[in-house]
Design a protein around this nucleic acid. Structure first.
Length: 1066
RNA sequence: GGGCGUUUAGCUCAGUUGGCUAGAGCGCCUCCCUUACAAGGAGGAUGUCGGGGGUUCGAGUCCCUCAACGCCCA
């Protein structure tokens, strides 16, 4: 008898104890840090840049998902031996961060405008520092194997240099311009918003019908509008050319009421024709005439462009009516509206129309209106000066489209040059692939209809635009400038001048007939110093001082956050001047293009597109990444997005605390299918008892299903608690008696149980491996001859698991990775292999070698998904195992994170063993069914009486059937039937089981066999039906027909065996 | 308005080019604290694969259509 060593491990896995120690070991060994390969090295590289989380708040479950997936890929590739870089960092998130900081300050009674720009930016910087720390520590807690020595921030010095340089190059190359354009203006925060920062809301408003008299006094037209106040800026009335009234009105004009402006009637098929009977609200409410206000409506802006209409801006930045922003023909009647807010102006203008008999009708009208996501007031389409990137230029848009894998996106749209194959300048063409493939369409459609990108934001937190401007009278401008702008019409024009030796990019345009605006972009110091036109006496400060002395003023706006994020795969690797940051030298060459971008689909347009355009533009066509994996969005159990206001979010930190990081990661990986949403029903943890339960839900007036603010403890009805929703809605606050209940989800239990299973399987194996002297008796190399049946089988399963996992990772099918691990480890290794070897492993050193190897391989395979439990078990397993199984490569390693991915030789794949195992296992299962039904005690050994073919199978399985089914004796039966035996049908033979219990309950036995007979009869008739179908026999592949025949025969034989067993009961 | 996704057991979901008797986890029922694991083991019940139509020898899978829910974009 081998001596059993005492347990070196506790009885259950305790993540909170294991995880910090594991993290320390990784950090001490710097195992996640990578240096670029030496020049000429043939090392494979693998890299991911993290989608930088906003420094606005701690990471939520969506981040946890995204990061878990990236870490699985990263750890797998690191183990495969690739030089692997996962670049971490955070995003300054201009508008979002400014908003939260402003809100926080306001709560303290401090206003941003009062404290001034510098102080505010400093305050925001503090906020950023705090949250950056939180985010990085969360990444670490989740097990993220980022190179934490390379943490970047989109506003740090290195990234700022990249931003400045990129801006300068685009500016110089004519891809950045300034223009008066309609923007989504938030009059409260006085900020321009991008389209995606505008939230559409249904508003119950009115449709007003206003009469505009024709200038020839022959009548009037009636325009329908939801925004009467903008009529002050009308410059046309439009009618659909197919409208029967159009021809009579052709060439006519109307006199704009109040203002007296004479404006044309134009024909444009954008106009919806009136149709009172229509079910479409637009047509039902239309009058057929549209007032056209190019300065205050994006559609009108387009109509204005088509018909070359005047653009008259009648509002100021606060949304009030103003004559200071381009409105010149202010009549006496109109003057009294100047200065009114847009709301007051609307009311008074309607009153005016009514008083003057020009208000034809008012109808209630519900329509959707864009609102600011920040201030929640309706946005104002407003004409203002903004900076744009000309992404519609073929150098950007075309390049982004040409990047797409042609199999995912076969045709390029009109106007995009065809792929130029074999041209060195078009590296990266056709190499961008999306997973799942359908997102290629989203990407394509976005670029097909893309508009120029407004990059200026009226904020303080961000990269300030590196442009200095001044307005000069034309006659005061230098000759070069005058020449440059003469031929142009409002457009910007590049000026080649020599006013500074540095040769800065210089644009100019007329802002009025007599005034010219000059704009000069100052590049970062590094670019300036490298300029071949550089004057060594002029450094950056000198250049700026010279400009400012000339009356130039820096633009106060900052860049859209996505401008810096768009450079992320380059800026984090030291672009454009790695030599200025020695730790980055070599990174770009080795790791850009990165291997894959993992992100949510909502930012395909905002981020993915821009990274592709920038990376390709600045790096000779090189892609920022070749693969884009779009993961699902996590919703709550009711299909709602998780959000703070609904209180339905699950905090990753809570799950790490209650279940462990591995459990969280495993559950997230397992739910990652290629659908676009996954549901995670949210439960609550009772703070009094620690028991999780499904809360009582209520429906809000907005139709959301949320946890009721007050919940009763499921275990103790006298105790209550409050829900996150209740707190978020301001209905309740936590108290000592009624504390806040944390959210959780039952989904994570699977992961926790699994980690515990692995832990205990290891505990079992370690006891078997640590037997005295075992290592000395084992062969140094275990070969096929040393293997038992179950050993060969488990090695086959191992080989299968390795290849399945690798294939699934290659296709980003994460759920398959998790499911394969779960099935292999739990069902194959634990339920079958470990159980089967129990009687033999203690005295079979060769089997110990197999057991140790399988265990070792299990830890390696599971490590990318569950890094903590595997790493924490690794030292004990490494120390305990000995010997080598031929064909199983598991080179030793101090740390599992740095260990090699298992390589299993194809010779260990054994289909014959697999099929015999499955038959033997089916027999064992059938016997266990009988044992369960007869309530046989686990320890009770039974006897099997089988026919010789089955006896052969059992003996070839070398004890496995006996062990798994609790069989003490197998007898090859003759014609006799042992008294009191139970019977089952197996492979068409009758297997008799004796020794089950003292007596056979004949009635129960009859019931059981009768059920078997019914099931078999159903099978037989099913197969017979199939085979009697001539079409099936004629058309189905022969092997399927043959299979069906065999199954029919087997079912028939089983039926016969069951019938004979029933007969034997009497 | 355009695009996309989802609908399979009570719940959450697998089901790869059509082909074995439609699966898993949780929950439920029975038995078992058998020295790896009760966060466990053995067994069991539960499905007109959203409705309708079509293609096919054969449809959860392909096509058409209807419905519901959801997401993205405009």
């Amino acid at each position: 008898m081998t001596e059993i060593a005492s347990d070196p491990l506790p009885k259950a896995y305790v993540p909170s104890e294991a995880e910090p120690a594991v993290t320390r070991r990784w950090n001490d060994a710097r195992v996640f840090h990578v240096e670029p390969p030496a020049a000429g090295s043939a090392a494979r590289t693998y890299s991911i840049v993290i989608p930088p989380p906003n420094v606005t708040a701690a990471l939520h479950l969506g981040h946890a998902l995204n990061n878990a997936l990236q870490d699985v890929l990263i750890r797998h590739h690191r183990m495969k031996g690739d030089l692997t870089l996962w670049m971490p960092g955070t995003d300054h998130a201009g508008i979002a961060t400014q908003t939260v900081v402003e809100k926080r300050l306001l709560a303290e009674g401090i206003k941003r405008l009062d404290m001034g720009r510098e102080a505010f930016v400093e305050k925001t910087q503090e906020w950023k520092d705090d949250y950056e720390q939180v985010i990085l520590s969360q990444l670490e807690m989740m097990g993220g194997s980022c190179d934490f020595e390379r943490v970047r921030f989109t506003m740090d010095e290195m990234c700022a240099t990249a931003v400045r340089h990129a801006f300068f190059v685009l500016f110089r190359d004519g891809l950045i311009y300034r223009g008066k354009r309609l923007v989504n203006w938030d009059p409260v925060t006085r900020t321009a918003l991008s389209d995606d920062e505008v939230e559409m809301e249904e508003v119950e408003g009115h449709m007003w019908y206003l009469r505009y008299p024709l200038s020839d006094r022959s009548g009037h037209v009636t325009v329908a509008t939801t925004r009467p106040e903008t009529m002050l800026g009308d410059t046309a009335v439009a009618v659909n050319p197919n409208d029967p009234r159009a021809s009579d009105l052709r060439g006519k004009f109307v006199v704009l009421p109040i203002v007296g402006r004479v404006i044309p009637i134009v024909e444009d098929d954008y106009v919806v024709m009136a149709d009172p009977a229509s079910t479409e609200a637009k047509a039902a409410y239309a009058s057929g005439f549209l007032k056209v206000t190019p300065a205050h409506d994006p559609n009108d802006w387009e109509i204005g462009r088509r018909h070359e209409l005047a653009v008259i801006n009648v509002m100021g930045p606060d949304g009030a009516i103003s004559d200071e922003y381009g409105w010149e023909d202010v009549s006496d009647d109109a003057r009294r509206f100047v200065g009114l807010s847009r709301e007051e102006a609307r009311a008074q203008i309607v009153t005016w129309f009514e008083a003057n008999g020009l208000l034809e009708n008012v109808r209630d009208y519900t329509h959707s209106v864009g609102h600011s996501y920040r201030s929640h007031v309706p946005i104002e389409p407003w004409l203002s000066d903004q900076w744009y990137v000309a992404v519609t230029d073929d150098r950007l848009r075309g390049s982004a489209l040409r990047a797409q894998d042609p199999t995912q996106s076969p045709d390029l749209p009109e106007g995009v040059a065809r792929r130029r194959t074999g041209d060195g300048g078009t590296r990266g063409d056709g190499e961008l692939r999306f997973f799942p493939a359908r997102y290629a369409r989203t990407y394509y459609a976005w670029h097909d209809g893309i508009r120029d990108w407004c990059i200026s934001r009226q904020l303080w937190w961000g990269h300030q635009i590196p442009v200095w401007t001044r307005i000069v009278a034309s006659e005061d401008a230098s000759p070069e400038v005058r020449v440059a702008v003469t031929s142009t019409d409002g457009a910007m024009f590049a000026v080649e001048d020599s006013w500074t030796a540095a040769g800065l990019a210089h644009l100019a345009r007329h802002v009025t007939e007599t005034e010219i605006e000059q704009a000069v972009c100052v590049p970062p110091a590094g670019t300036l110093a490298r300029s071949d036109r550089a004057d060594a006496s002029l450094d950056e400060a000198g250049v700026i001082a010279a400009l400012e002395a000339d009356g130039f003023v820096r633009d106060p706006d900052v860049l859209d956050t996505w401008f810096s994020s768009g450079l992320w795969p380059m800026s984090t690797m030291g672009w454009p001047y790695p030599e200025d940051y020695p730790e980055t030298v070599g990174l770009l060459e080795a790791f850009n293009p990165t291997s894959v971008l993992t992100t949510a689909r909502e930012i395909i347009t905002l981020w993915v597109s821009r990274m592709v355009m920038f990376n390709r533009y600045f790096l000779d066509g090189r892609l920022p990444f070749t693969d884009v994996f779009i993961h699902a969005m996590i919703q709550d159990g009711h299909g709602q997005k998780m959000s703070k206001s609904l209180g339905n979010g699950v905090d990753p930190r809570d799950i790490i605390e209650t279940h462990g990081a591995d459990a969280m990661r495993f559950a997230l990986v397992q739910t990652t299918t290629d659908t676009q949403d996954v549901r995670m029903p949210v439960d609550m943890i009772c703070p009094h008892t620690g028991v999780s339960f499904t809360p009582k839900f209520i429906t809000t007036s907005a139709g959301h299903v949320v946890a009721a603010p007050v919940q009763t403890s499921p275990a103790d009805p006298s105790k209550t608690m409050v829900s996150a929703y209740g707190v978020a809605a301001g209905v309740v606050s936590p108290t000592e008696d009624a504390p806040l209940a944390l959210n959780t989800s039952a989904k994570f239990d699977v992961g926790r149980n699994f980690a515990n299973k692995v832990f205990n399987a290891t505990r079992f194996a370690l006891r078997r491996l640590s037997a005295e002297g075992a290592a000395d008796k084992a062969p140094a190399v275990v070969t096929a001859a040393d293997l038992m049946f179950v050993d060969r089988w488990i090695l086959d399963r191992l080989a299968n698991a390795v290849s399945t996992i690798e294939a699934a990772l290659g296709r980003y099918q994460f759920n398959q990775v998790a499911d394969t691990l779960y099935d292999f480890i739990w069902h194959d290794v634990c339920d079958r292999y470990l159980e089967a070897v129990k009687p033999t492993v203690d005295h079979r050193p060769a089997q110990q070698v197999v057991l140790g190897s399988v265990l070792d391989a299990v830890l390696r395979l599971l490590h990318p998904v569950c890094p903590f439990v595997t790493e924490s078990l690794w030292p004990a397993v490494s120390a305990a195992r000995f010997g080598v199984v031929e064909g199983v490569e598991l080179p030793p390693s101090t740390l599992l994170a740095g260990a090699a991915w298992p390589v299993i030789d194809a010779s260990l794949i054994d289909h014959d063993i697999r099929s015999r195992f499955e038959r033997a296992d089916a027999l064992a299962s059938a016997v266990r069914v009988v044992r369960a039904q007869r309530n046989v005690a686990p320890k009770q050994q039974i006897e099997l009486h089988v026919e010789s073919a089955v006896a052969t199978l059992i003996s070839q399985a070398e004890g496995m059937v006996e062990t798994l089914a609790g069989v003490g004796l197998v007898v090859t039966r003759g014609a006799d039937r042992p008294a009191g035996a139970s019977a089952l049908a197996f492979e068409g033979t009758e297997v008799l089981i004796s020794g089950l219990a003292d007596d056979v309950d004949v009635e129960a036995e009859r019931d059981r066999i009768t059920k078997v007979i019914a099931a078999k009869e159903k099978q037989v008739s099913g197969f017979e039906g199939k085979l009697s179908n001539d079409g099936y026999v004629a058309n189905a592949p022969a092997h399927l027909v043959e299979e069906t025949r065999q199954m029919l025969e087997a079912a028939k034989a089983d039926l016969a065996a069951a019938l004979s067993a029933l007969a034997a009961l009497g």
